[in-house]
């Protein structure tokens, strides 16, 4: 894959480039600040962009804004956003521009290389990758009448993995259960939460995330 990296911390930038090259990807450009981001993306049209949320000059959300701007001009550009800590607003902003080919990971996740590379592949293939930390924060019990209470522990696990963006096969593999059981659990979850049945893929992820986000905002 051809990849553009935008990260202001030199250590991380070089580390990422080294890792991605060593597993056979091509890093076609690296960017250090928000200003250079969009032109570089339009110039190289990479297969995926890996972006830090906060970039110079203001260290607010240059990376994210760059991603949104780039996706307006290159609608299919997969974007994997790296963040220092979980910021729901940012994750929601990212999803609001369509949940295909987007990822939101904590920077620490980069150190867990297998997970990171899988997430990268998933996003590049048009899928979704949400950091487990983001999902677990969305899954916490909020109110006494939390609809998620209706789920069995196993169903909660399946829901979390689904929200992170894993496909049925991957969920089965991670939980050591057969894919047919995964399908059964998912059917139950959708029924219990009253979610409309959707086909697999990113539309399902989007439905789940939207649902979880709506729970979260109601609790606030």
């Amino acid at each position: 894959m051809r990849i553009v990296i935008a990260e202001d911390n030199a250590l991380l930038r070089e580390g990422l480039a080294l890792l991605l090259t060593s597993v056979g990807h091509e890093v076609c450009a690296t960017v250090e600040d928000g200003d250079g981001l969009l032109p570089t993306l339009l110039d190289h049209r990479p297969d995926i962009a890996v972006l830090d949320v906060r970039l110079p000059p203001t260290y607010r959300d240059e990376g994210l804004r760059g991603a949104v701007a780039a996706r307006e001009q290159l609608p299919d550009l997969p974007v994997l956003v790296l963040s220092q800590y979980v910021e729901h607003v940012r994750a929601a902003q990212l999803l609001s521009h369509g949940a295909s080919g987007v990822g939101y990971l904590l920077k620490d996740r980069v150190g867990r290389v297998e997970e990171f590379l899988q997430a990268l592949e998933r996003v590049a293939g048009g899928g979704v990758a949400m950091d487990p930390e983001v999902i677990s924060q969305l899954m916490v019990r909020r109110t006494r009448n939390d609809p998620l209470d209706a789920l069995s522990p196993r169903e909660r696990e399946v829901l979390s993995l689904m929200a992170e963006g894993h496909g049925n096969g991957a969920i089965g593999g991670l939980l050591f259960i057969a894919e047919t059981s995964v399908n059964k659990h998912i059917g139950n979850i959708f029924a219990k939460l009253g979610l409309p049945a959707t086909d697999g893929g990113h539309r399902r992820v989007q439905a789940v995330l939207t649902y979880l986000n709506s729970l979260d905002t109601r609790a606030d």
Binding site: S22, G111, V113
Partner: peptide, 22 residues
């Protein structure tokens, strides 16, 4: 802490992953 220690440790982890690859 973020820019120094954390970034440093993450890049060490990246190096270790690359070592395993090569």
């Amino acid at each position: 802490l973020h820019d120094g220690a954390q970034a440093g440790l993450v890049s060490v982890a990246l190096r270790l992953a690359v070592m395993k690859q090569v």
